[in-house]
Structures are given as C-alpha cells and as structure tokens.
Design a protein around this nucleic acid. Structure first.
Lengths: 146, 146
DNA sequence: AAGGAATAGTTGTCATGACAACTAATTTAC
DNA sequence: GTAAATTAGTTGTCATGACAACTATTCCTT
C-alpha cells in the first residue's frame, strides 16, 4: 500500500470536482442560462419527478437540509420552482418546477448531455465501472469512520 | 455510450468529495485540532516545502488565488503561518509554517495517515490506478471545453 | 526609456456547505 | 391519552469557492 499513500484521495477528488463544476458554470453561461450547477441538480431532479419534498431532494443530491432549503429559496426567487403544502403532513413541503423552470431545464439539457459525452471521452465502459466501484467503496469506507 | 449517460459524473464526484471532506472534519475534531480540511491542505504543502508563494500553493491545491489568500488569512490569524516579503519581487509573499503550525501538522499526521488507509480499503492497486487515470482524463476533457 | 501587458495578491459579492440551534408537527412509547 | 423522541424545514454563523475588479509591481515590446 505504500505506493498509494503517496496519493491523496482528497486532492484527486477536489481537482476533478472543481473542474467539473467550473465546466458546468461555463456551459450555463454559454447558453445564457441563469443557473448554477447546484441549482441544476435540483431542477433536473424535479424534472424527472416533480413535487418532491425537500428531504427527497436532499437524499438524491447528497446535500444537507439547510443547503437544499437555501438553493430552493433562490430557485423560487428566480421563479423556476414553487413550494406547496404537502397534504397530510404539515411539516412537509412539495417542491414543483414552474413552466419557466421546465423550459429552462429543456433549454439546458442538450448542452449538459454534450458535457456528459465530453467527460467520458478517452475512457472505456470498464473505466467507468471501476470509477463507480471506487467512488462507492470510498463512500462506504468513510461512512464507517469514527 | 448509452449506459454511461445514465450516470452523471458530477453527482459521483460530489458525493465522494463531500464525504471525504466530512470525514476529515470529523478526524480533526476527534484529535482536537482546530483546522479545516482546506487549511490542512495548505499546511501540509508548507510542511513539505516551507516558504512557498501563494501562487505556488494555488497551483498545488488547484484552488484560486482569492481562496488561497483567505485561507492564509485564517491560518495566519490562528498563528499557524506567517506571511513574509519575497526578496527580489515586491509583489510576492512567502508563506511560512510557524512552530505552532508545524506542531499541528505533526499532531494530525497519524490520523490523516489512518484516513488514507481507510479510504482505499477493499480496493486494489489496479482500482487506484484506474481512478487516477479517470480523474486525469476528466481533468483533461474538461480543460478543453469551451 | 517609455508604455503596454502580465503577474501577485487583495477586496467585494454572491452561492454553497458545515455545524448548531430552533420551531412546529408527527410518531412512538408507555 | 400523554409525554418523549423524531422529523421537516428554517435561521445563524463561519469557511470556502467563483467571478469581477482593483492596486502595485514586474516583464516585455517598441
């Protein structure tokens, strides 16, 4: 394991995550979409399944509740989403994409698709599968830390 | 490529990055070290090579200049680092670890080492190599976007 | 030598992410 | 039925990260 100890998982992940996010930022700017990568994650999730609770969104996006709440504040302000009461449980809210939000998602989808294609260029299905395996295992390994 | 398009690189990276960072936060708390993961990256870099410029640190950490400047503001306030003038170029500063900073790095090192070991548990050298290859390729792929 | 371009670092602003704490509502245990 | 525990979402605070803009300094071009 000595060879691996020369490489830090953190820096590899940070680097990749950062440039991925930066590239998404550029893409949105390129198509003149007023949205951040993080907001996109939420809107895209709602596009697939509209009317989710904030807790649903948290879990899907691996984000914490305060962060989700704040992102939704902003997407509501931009009129991309709307908060509605959840029938049967007064604590919960349902979050809906607006027509404006739906339009935006559809506008962005081709460019994001292109980004996805770009990201895996020069890599095989096997590479992808190993990447998934590694990220899953990292998640498991760190989930057990204390 | 249709299979891969079901999976988004962003979310995989985000998830892994987040839990990695969270685990580092827990580790520092566990050993009662007053430091964040991001600050650690800077201190560790200085431990290896003391007296670097901020730009050096930026490049090594894949962070932008304002962020580095702010992190160093805080590490200076905590007395872990000190800014000094760079002989021969009045624009530049050299950043040094203090004795307190050095002590902190040495205090943290075993736990961070243990985290490193934990992170790769259940994964092979081959997995690691593929992970590196994938993250490098992602970096390259996105660096070419526009 | 002079002026333009590039560089090092800083400041402002906004967004996101972590933790802690809180309120209100629901669920669980007795 | 009641009280304790848990849950959904919000607010506060601090740290980080992005972009834009800025000042001072150095480098490059003419």
């Amino acid at each position: 394991m000595t060879q691996k100890n020369e490489k830090k998982v953190g820096i590899l992940l940070e680097r990749s995550t950062r440039i991925t996010k930066l590239t998404f930022i550029k893409a949105f700017k390129k198509i003149d979409a007023d949205i951040t990568p993080e907001q996109w994650v939420i809107l895209d999730s709602l596009y697939k399944e509209n009317g989710q609770t904030q807790t649903d969104l948290c879990q899907k996006a691996y984000k914490n509740k305060p962060t989700i709440s704040r992102i939704i504040d902003i997407t509501c302000e931009k009129k991309y989403t709307k908060r509605k009461n959840f029938d049967g449980d007064r604590r919960k809210l349902k979050i809906f994409l607006t027509a404006k939000g739906t339009k935006l998602v559809e506008k962005c989808a081709p460019e994001i698709e292109a980004l996805r294609d770009l990201s895996w260029k020069g890599l095989s299905n096997q590479d992808y599968n190993t990447f998934c395996k590694v990220t899953d295992q990292l998640f498991k390994n760190f989930s057990s830390y204390e």
